[in-house]
Protein backbone atom coordinates (compact mmCIF):
# COMPACT_ATOMS: atom_id res chain seq x y z
CA UNK A 1 0.00 0.00 0.00
CA UNK A 2 1.39 3.40 -0.92
CA UNK A 3 1.74 5.91 1.86
CA UNK A 4 -0.91 7.97 0.06
CA UNK A 5 -3.41 5.11 0.30
CA UNK A 6 -2.29 4.52 3.88
CA UNK A 7 -2.83 8.19 4.74
CA UNK A 8 -6.31 8.18 3.24
CA UNK A 9 -7.11 4.93 4.99
CA UNK A 10 -6.02 6.41 8.33
CA UNK A 11 -8.28 9.38 7.59
CA UNK A 12 -11.13 6.97 6.96
CA UNK A 13 -10.45 5.14 10.23
CA UNK A 14 -10.59 8.39 12.20
CA UNK A 15 -13.64 9.62 10.27
CA UNK A 16 -15.36 6.31 11.01
CA UNK A 17 -14.92 6.92 14.74
CA UNK A 18 -16.29 10.43 14.29
CA UNK A 19 -19.29 8.95 12.51
CA UNK A 20 -19.82 6.28 15.19
CA UNK A 21 -19.76 8.96 17.88
CA UNK A 22 -22.71 10.67 16.19
CA UNK A 23 -24.33 7.34 15.41
CA UNK A 24 -24.71 6.08 18.97
CA UNK A 25 -26.10 9.41 20.15
CA UNK A 26 -28.47 9.54 17.20
CA UNK A 27 -29.67 6.02 18.00
CA UNK A 28 -31.48 7.46 21.02
CA UNK A 29 -33.04 10.20 18.92
CA UNK A 30 -30.59 12.95 19.87
CA UNK A 31 -28.78 14.90 17.16
CA UNK A 32 -25.47 16.42 18.23
CA UNK A 33 -23.93 19.17 16.09
CA UNK A 34 -21.11 19.63 18.57
CA UNK A 35 -19.17 16.37 18.49
CA UNK A 36 -16.06 18.11 17.19
CA UNK A 37 -15.81 19.59 20.69
CA UNK A 38 -15.42 16.11 22.23
CA UNK A 39 -12.90 15.36 19.53
CA UNK A 40 -10.98 18.51 20.45
CA UNK A 41 -10.93 17.54 24.12
CA UNK A 42 -9.67 14.07 23.23
CA UNK A 43 -7.06 15.44 20.85
CA UNK A 44 -5.63 17.99 23.26
CA UNK A 45 -5.77 15.67 26.25
CA UNK A 46 -4.15 12.68 24.52
CA UNK A 47 -1.43 14.97 23.16
CA UNK A 48 -0.77 16.67 26.48
CA UNK A 49 -0.70 13.37 28.39
CA UNK A 50 1.90 11.92 26.04
CA UNK A 51 3.98 15.02 25.31
CA UNK A 52 4.00 16.55 28.81
CA UNK A 53 3.37 13.57 31.10
CA UNK A 54 5.12 10.95 28.97
CA UNK A 55 2.25 8.48 29.09
CA UNK A 56 2.17 5.70 26.47
CA UNK A 57 -0.21 6.57 23.66
CA UNK A 58 -2.67 3.72 24.23
CA UNK A 59 -3.13 4.67 27.87
CA UNK A 60 -3.43 8.33 26.94
CA UNK A 61 -6.11 7.52 24.37
CA UNK A 62 -8.07 5.54 26.94
CA UNK A 63 -7.88 8.41 29.39
CA UNK A 64 -8.80 10.89 26.68
CA UNK A 65 -11.80 8.73 25.79
CA UNK A 66 -12.86 8.52 29.43
CA UNK A 67 -12.50 12.26 29.98
CA UNK A 68 -14.44 13.09 26.82
CA UNK A 69 -17.05 10.55 27.82
CA UNK A 70 -17.38 12.21 31.19
CA UNK A 71 -17.78 15.58 29.52
CA UNK A 72 -20.38 13.95 27.25
CA UNK A 73 -22.36 12.84 30.30
CA UNK A 74 -22.15 16.37 31.69
CA UNK A 75 -23.51 17.71 28.40
CA UNK A 76 -26.05 14.91 28.22
CA UNK A 77 -27.91 15.97 31.35
CA UNK A 78 -28.95 19.44 30.25
CA UNK A 79 -29.54 17.95 26.79
CA UNK A 80 -32.40 15.96 28.32
CA UNK A 81 -34.43 19.14 28.43
CA UNK A 82 -34.13 19.67 24.71
CA UNK A 83 -35.37 17.89 21.66
CA UNK A 84 -34.84 17.86 17.94
CA UNK A 85 -33.60 21.01 16.35
CA UNK A 86 -33.30 22.76 19.73
CA UNK A 87 -30.89 20.15 20.97
CA UNK A 88 -29.01 20.41 17.69
CA UNK A 89 -28.65 24.16 18.11
CA UNK A 90 -27.58 23.88 21.75
CA UNK A 91 -24.86 21.36 20.87
CA UNK A 92 -23.78 23.65 18.05
CA UNK A 93 -23.35 26.41 20.63
CA UNK A 94 -21.42 24.04 22.89
CA UNK A 95 -19.11 23.21 19.98
CA UNK A 96 -18.42 26.85 19.22
CA UNK A 97 -17.77 27.58 22.90
CA UNK A 98 -15.29 24.74 23.16
CA UNK A 99 -13.47 25.90 20.04
CA UNK A 100 -13.25 29.40 21.42
CA UNK A 101 -12.03 28.02 24.73
CA UNK A 102 -9.07 26.28 23.09
CA UNK A 103 -8.37 29.37 21.00
CA UNK A 104 -7.72 31.25 24.21
CA UNK A 105 -6.20 28.41 26.23
CA UNK A 106 -2.50 29.32 26.33
CA UNK A 107 -1.17 26.08 27.91
CA UNK A 108 -2.35 24.21 24.80
CA UNK A 109 -0.84 26.78 22.45
CA UNK A 110 -4.03 28.77 21.79
CA UNK A 111 -4.34 29.82 18.17
CA UNK A 112 -0.71 28.83 17.62
CA UNK A 113 -1.61 25.15 17.90
CA UNK A 114 0.07 22.24 19.65
CA UNK A 115 2.76 19.91 18.38
CA UNK A 116 5.26 17.38 19.67
CA UNK A 117 3.35 14.19 18.93
CA UNK A 118 5.12 11.33 17.13
CA UNK A 119 3.82 9.48 14.09
CA UNK A 120 1.65 6.37 14.48
CA UNK A 121 1.01 3.66 11.92
CA UNK A 122 -2.20 3.30 9.98
CA UNK A 123 -2.50 -0.20 11.47
CA UNK A 124 -2.53 1.27 14.98
CA UNK A 125 -5.28 3.71 14.02
CA UNK A 126 -7.30 0.94 12.42
CA UNK A 127 -6.83 -1.32 15.42
CA UNK A 128 -8.74 1.28 17.42
CA UNK A 129 -11.28 2.01 14.71
CA UNK A 130 -12.00 -1.64 14.00
CA UNK A 131 -12.32 -2.59 17.67
CA UNK A 132 -14.68 0.28 18.36
CA UNK A 133 -16.70 -0.57 15.24
CA UNK A 134 -16.95 -4.19 16.39
CA UNK A 135 -17.92 -2.91 19.83
CA UNK A 136 -20.75 -0.84 18.38
CA UNK A 137 -21.88 -3.75 16.16
CA UNK A 138 -22.00 -6.00 19.24
CA UNK A 139 -23.87 -3.31 21.11
CA UNK A 140 -26.38 -3.26 18.27
CA UNK A 141 -27.12 -6.91 18.87
CA UNK A 142 -27.64 -6.44 22.57
CA UNK A 143 -30.79 -5.79 24.52
CA UNK A 144 -29.44 -2.36 25.45
CA UNK A 145 -29.64 -1.32 21.81
CA UNK A 146 -33.32 -2.28 21.70
CA UNK A 147 -33.74 0.09 24.62
CA UNK A 148 -31.84 2.80 22.70
CA UNK A 149 -34.20 2.31 19.77
CA UNK A 150 -37.23 2.25 22.03
CA UNK A 151 -36.25 5.64 23.43
CA UNK A 152 -35.76 6.88 19.88
CA UNK A 153 -39.10 5.58 18.63
CA UNK A 154 -41.27 6.73 21.49
CA UNK A 155 -39.73 8.10 24.63
CA UNK A 156 -42.97 8.26 26.62
CA UNK A 157 -43.82 4.67 25.82
CA UNK A 158 -40.28 3.63 26.74
CA UNK A 159 -40.71 5.43 30.03
CA UNK A 160 -44.03 3.70 30.64
CA UNK A 161 -42.65 0.20 30.13
CA UNK A 162 -40.09 0.97 32.82
CA UNK A 163 -36.97 1.85 30.83
CA UNK A 164 -34.66 4.33 32.48
CA UNK A 165 -34.78 6.83 29.64
CA UNK A 166 -32.56 9.33 31.46
CA UNK A 167 -29.75 6.84 31.90
CA UNK A 168 -30.11 5.65 28.32
CA UNK A 169 -30.00 9.12 26.77
CA UNK A 170 -27.20 10.43 28.98
CA UNK A 171 -25.29 7.17 28.59
CA UNK A 172 -25.53 7.38 24.80
CA UNK A 173 -24.14 10.93 24.96
CA UNK A 174 -21.27 9.75 27.13
CA UNK A 175 -20.49 6.80 24.89
CA UNK A 176 -20.59 8.92 21.74
CA UNK A 177 -18.38 11.56 23.34
CA UNK A 178 -15.90 8.91 24.45
CA UNK A 179 -15.62 7.56 20.90
CA UNK A 180 -15.17 11.11 19.61
CA UNK A 181 -12.44 11.65 22.23
CA UNK A 182 -10.51 8.62 20.99
CA UNK A 183 -11.01 9.83 17.42
CA UNK A 184 -9.54 13.19 18.46
CA UNK A 185 -6.48 11.60 20.04
CA UNK A 186 -5.83 9.48 16.96
CA UNK A 187 -6.38 12.53 14.77
CA UNK A 188 -3.76 14.47 16.72
CA UNK A 189 -1.29 11.63 16.31
CA UNK A 190 -2.06 11.21 12.63
CA UNK A 191 -1.73 14.93 11.84
CA UNK A 192 1.09 15.58 14.35
CA UNK A 193 -0.21 19.11 14.85
CA UNK A 194 -3.55 20.38 16.11
CA UNK A 195 -5.13 23.81 16.31
CA UNK A 196 -8.61 24.91 17.41
CA UNK A 197 -9.68 25.67 13.84
CA UNK A 198 -9.58 21.92 13.07
CA UNK A 199 -12.46 21.29 15.47
CA UNK A 200 -15.07 23.79 14.32
CA UNK A 201 -18.64 23.59 13.11
CA UNK A 202 -17.65 22.07 9.75
CA UNK A 203 -15.95 19.13 11.50
CA UNK A 204 -19.11 18.46 13.55
CA UNK A 205 -21.19 18.60 10.39
CA UNK A 206 -18.82 16.21 8.59
CA UNK A 207 -19.26 13.72 11.42
CA UNK A 208 -23.04 13.89 11.03
CA UNK A 209 -22.72 13.51 7.26
CA UNK A 210 -20.79 10.24 7.59
CA UNK A 211 -23.81 8.81 9.37
CA UNK A 212 -26.59 10.34 7.34
CA UNK A 213 -25.01 9.55 3.98
CA UNK A 214 -23.70 6.12 4.86
CA UNK A 215 -26.76 4.98 6.72
CA UNK A 216 -28.11 5.83 10.13
CA UNK A 217 -29.70 2.51 10.90
CA UNK A 218 -26.68 0.19 10.81
CA UNK A 219 -23.19 0.67 12.19
CA UNK A 220 -21.55 -0.11 8.85
CA UNK A 221 -23.40 2.95 7.49
CA UNK A 222 -20.91 5.37 9.09
CA UNK A 223 -18.10 3.19 7.71
CA UNK A 224 -19.37 3.61 4.16
CA UNK A 225 -20.14 7.29 4.76
CA UNK A 226 -16.67 7.97 6.13
CA UNK A 227 -15.04 6.14 3.23
CA UNK A 228 -17.05 8.02 0.62
CA UNK A 229 -16.62 11.44 2.19
CA UNK A 230 -12.87 11.04 2.66
CA UNK A 231 -12.36 9.76 -0.89
CA UNK A 232 -14.89 11.94 -2.70
CA UNK A 233 -12.86 15.19 -2.61
CA UNK A 234 -9.94 13.22 -4.06
CA UNK A 235 -12.09 11.70 -6.81
CA UNK A 236 -13.66 15.05 -7.64
CA UNK A 237 -10.24 16.66 -8.23
CA UNK A 238 -10.75 16.62 -12.00
CA UNK A 239 -13.52 19.20 -11.56
CA UNK A 240 -10.90 21.68 -10.32
CA UNK A 241 -12.61 24.89 -9.21
CA UNK A 242 -16.04 23.32 -9.10
CA UNK A 243 -15.37 20.33 -6.93
CA UNK A 244 -17.01 21.74 -3.82
CA UNK A 245 -20.14 22.61 -5.78
CA UNK A 246 -20.19 19.10 -7.22
CA UNK A 247 -19.82 17.72 -3.73
CA UNK A 248 -22.80 19.79 -2.59
CA UNK A 249 -24.86 18.60 -5.54
CA UNK A 250 -24.03 14.94 -4.91
CA UNK A 251 -24.94 15.44 -1.27
CA UNK A 252 -28.36 16.78 -2.25
CA UNK A 253 -28.91 13.88 -4.66
CA UNK A 254 -28.17 11.28 -2.02
CA UNK A 255 -30.36 13.04 0.56
CA UNK A 256 -33.23 13.23 -1.91
CA UNK A 257 -33.06 9.70 -3.16
CA UNK A 258 -31.62 7.73 -0.24
CA UNK A 259 -33.10 9.30 2.86
CA UNK A 260 -32.14 6.41 5.04
CA UNK A 261 -28.54 6.64 3.82
CA UNK A 262 -26.90 4.49 1.21
CA UNK A 263 -26.99 1.39 3.38
CA UNK A 264 -30.03 0.51 5.44
CA UNK A 265 -31.23 -2.40 7.49
CA UNK A 266 -33.35 -3.71 4.66
CA UNK A 267 -30.23 -4.55 2.70
CA UNK A 268 -29.01 -6.71 5.51
CA UNK A 269 -32.23 -8.56 6.06
CA UNK A 270 -31.55 -11.00 3.26
CA UNK A 271 -27.95 -11.48 4.28
CA UNK A 272 -28.34 -11.97 7.98
CA UNK A 273 -30.02 -14.92 9.63
CA UNK A 274 -30.95 -12.78 12.54
CA UNK A 275 -34.41 -11.28 12.47
CA UNK A 276 -34.24 -7.56 12.89
CA UNK A 277 -36.85 -5.94 15.00
CA UNK A 278 -37.78 -3.26 12.54
CA UNK A 279 -39.94 -0.61 14.05
Amino acid sequence: MSTYAAGLSADIGIALLGGLSVYVILATGQLSLGNAAFMAVGAYLASALTVYAGLPLTAALMLAGLASGFLGVLVGFPALRLRGIYLAMATLGFGEMTRSFFLDFAPAGGAGGFRGMGPVSTAYIWAWSASLLVGVVLLERSRLWLEFRAVNDDERAADLIGLNTTAIKVGAFGLGAAIAGVAGGLFAYHQLYIEPGMFGFDRSIEMVLYVVLGGSTVAVGPLLGATLLVLLPEFLRFLADWRLAAFGALLILVLLFRRQGIIDRGMFRGLSRRKWATP
Binding site: L244, A249, I252
Partner: peptide, 10 residues
Protein backbone atom coordinates in the same frame (compact mmCIF):
# COMPACT_ATOMS: atom_id res chain seq x y z
CA UNK B 1 -30.80 20.78 7.62
CA UNK B 2 -28.15 18.96 5.62
CA UNK B 3 -29.68 19.57 2.20
CA UNK B 4 -29.79 23.32 2.83
CA UNK B 5 -26.21 23.07 4.07
CA UNK B 6 -25.33 21.41 0.75
CA UNK B 7 -26.78 24.46 -0.98
CA UNK B 8 -24.64 26.73 1.10
CA UNK B 9 -21.54 24.78 0.01
CA UNK B 10 -22.61 25.26 -3.62
Amino acid sequence: LLSTLAFSII
